[in-house]
Nucleic acid binder design. Structure first.
Length: 571
RNA sequence: GAUUCAGUAGCUCAGCUGGUAGAGCAUUACACUUUUAAUGUAGGGGUCCUGGGUUCGAGCCCCAGCUGAAUCACCA
């Protein structure tokens, strides 16, 4: 393998040995007693203060007997000043001349003891008295540079490389790190908001025998001891409701869900939802709760309720507009769905140029009309309320209209980020709704749920208090709060196709047919003119070229140039 | 799933009817004690995504594939 390291990687390995030869362990075990960091130094600056810091060396400007460098730690960067005679007050100048100038590379972790001072240019700097190598980097990092106008050069910006090597992305792209800091703040803000209200954070199974609570295709796994299939959860709703049955008044969970469906810039196979259920509440209460929650979260994350997303400026300040689905369709499709039959709705949809098929029932048709004509219009946070019953099998029937349910979705920039119900707690009605889903599934609607969770129904039969539940797509919400149109940008490790890592083994056995042929001919006949060999092997030009290149690359053969011709021979 | 674009040095990117592969940063050597995209001089570094084809000759043209991105469709 070593022959396939780049020149720079080879040099770093040689330096590693060089350090060991000097008695320096490039990967020491001892803890490093740091007592400060880059932002602490800048904020609590005192001339002459002694500090101990640690971090990665990210730039170095060597000027003979003195050098300026930058150390990057978790807080940012701080300039450090290496002076030969400060580091090496005695005769022996090895630590500066050899170790620092020659054997330390950009990317290495250093521990630094020094004193604070300000340079003539006004930069707060650590004057290095003593430094140690804490860890050597064998691979060069990408190295974006910012010029004096703040313009970034050589930015590490290829999405594929950034997602596959997020560690490198985080090291060199501070704005990427910022997104994930905000993500963490969002979770903290939301958790604290719930805790303050006395609700309890819980955990429910990820491996489920019946994947319920949403309409989605699950991942299937298998339990060996029980010899049964287990599914990765697509939602945690049914489990949280069991806990409300059990007597908790408010439970919530940040839930990793898994859906075996398409991947694109807004869908990852695993994603995070937050679901909360609160007893004795309804969806009207939940709307107010939701807008207060999001206002709080936006402030905690960004310091303001306003957030830029693409060309829009969104304001999460409560209260939000509330529009019923019927009114939304009236407004944007100029059509009144109230009291219409399935046939009338299908014709209306067709008239609007919407594709429909026979498996679609009333609810689905209304949803299609809404999706095509209305959804994209709601830029500022807007509650869309009162969805058709057919598409909401876990939601309580509307108190004033049996065709509708007490459900709302929160739309932002034309996308759904939250979904909430007055939860259905009538066990008989619930059983009928599940059975209706089975019929839809048999009819060919692959979104309908095909299995009934009998245990969930048993729980409801014991009685569940009136309850309102809310689900929020956490990934989507943080996308809005950080102005990222791709979900991959807000996940540390988005799912990618597995990377093919080529392994070339520099041995004769690993050669392919063509390379072996060339090698064997050379072996039996010895050195010969390149062209003669080419004629003998009679390969296509491409194959010939590649075979010879591989052999020379592996140092198995050598081409030498004479006045007359090119000679090839085995090494 | 469809269409479009992209893949060249560690990183960012050039490249020409099809004729020995280039730059900046990084790297190596030398010089340089308050610099800041440090500077100067000299060097080294390439499976031009993979595989076929056309051609005297392909990084470039053709075909197939891989990977990613964007748009659309599908999906919540």
């Amino acid at each position: 393998m070593s022959q396939f390291l780049s020149e720079q990687e080879l040099i770093r390995r040689e330096k590693l040995q060089g350090l060991r030869d000097l008695g320096i362990n490039p990967y020491p075990a001892d803890l490093y007693p740091l007592n400060s960091n880059s932002s602490d130094i800048k904020q609590n600056y005192e001339e002459g203060k002694k500090v101990i810091i640690a971090g990665r060396l990210m730039s170095a400007r060597i000027q003979g007997k003195a050098s300026f460098a930058e150390i990057q730690d978790s807080e940012g960067r701080i300039q450090v000043y290496f002076n030969r005679d400060e580091i090496c007050p005695d005769e022996d100048k090895t630590m500066y001349n050899e170790v620092f100038k020659k054997l330390i590379d950009l990317g290495d972790f250093l521990g630094i003891e020094g004193e604070l001072f300000t340079t003539q240019v006004g930069e707060k700097t650590v004057l290095v008295k003593k430094f140690v190598l804490l860890s050597k980097a064998l691979k060069p990092l990408p190295l974006p540079k910012t010029d004096k106008d703040g313009k970034v050069h050589d930015q590490f910006n290829d999405p594929e490389m950034r997602y596959r090597q997020r560690y490198a992305d985080l090291v060199v792209n501070p704005h990427v790190k910022e997104v994930f800091i905000k993500r963490s703040k969002l979770f903290t803000a939301m958790r604290n908001f719930f805790m303050d209200k006395g609700y309890m954070e819980v955990e429910t199974p990820i491996l489920q025998a019946i994947p319920g609570g949403a309409a989605a295709r699950p991942f299937i796994s298998h339990h060996n001891a029980l010899d049964i299939p287990l599914y990765l959860r697509i939602a945690n709703e049914l489990y949280l409701k069991r806990l409300i049955v059990g007597g908790f008044d408010g439970v919530f969970e940040f839930s990793k869900n898994f859906r075996n469906e398409g991947m694109d810039r807004t869908h990852n196979p695993e994603f995070t939802a937050m679901e909360i259920y609160v007893a004795y509440k309804d969806y009207n209460w939940m709307m107010e709760f939701t807008e207060n929650l999001l206002e709080h979260c936006a402030k905690e994350v960004n310091g303001t309720t306003k957030a830029k997303f693409n060309e829009y400026e969104v304001d999460f300040k409560a209260p939000y507009a509330r529009v019923s689905m019927t009114d939304a369709i009236k407004q944007y499709a100029n059509y009144d769905i109230s009291g219409k039959t399935e046939e009338e709705l299908r014709e209306a949809a067709l008239g609007m140029g919407i594709e429909v098929d026979k498996t679609m029932g009333k609810g689905k048709l209304i949803d299609e009309i809404f999706g095509a004509k209305c959804e994209g219009n709601f830029i500022q946070p807007t509650f869309i309320t009162d969805y058709p019953k057919e598409m909401s099998p876990l939601c309580k029937e509307h108190r004033h209209n049996p065709e509708l349910t007490e459900r709302f979705e929160l739309m932002v920039c034309g996308k759904e980020i939250a979904n909430a119900y007055s939860e259905l707690n009538d066990p008989i009605d619930q059983r009928e709704r599940f059975e209706e889903q089975i019929r839809l599934a048999e009819k060919g609607d692959d979104e309908a749920t095909g299995l009934i969770d009998q245990d969930f129904l048993r729980a409801l039969e014991y009685g569940m208090p009136p309850t309102s539940g809310l689900g929020i797509g956490m990934d989507r919400l943080i996308m809005f709060l950080t102005n990222n149109p791709a979900i991959q940008e807000v996940l540390f490790f988005p799912q990618m196709r597995p990377e093919k890592i080529k392994k070339l083994n520099p041995s004769v056995e690993s050669l392919n047919e063509e390379e072996k042929l060339v090698y064997q001919l050379l072996e039996t006949q010895g050195a010969m003119p390149l062209n003669d060999l080419k004629e003998q092997v009679a390969l296509s030009n491409k194959k010939w070229d590649l075979a010879v290149k591989t052999l020379t690359k592996l140092n198995l053969a050598k081409v030498t140039k004479t006045d007359e011709s090119l000679l090839i021979e085995i090494i």
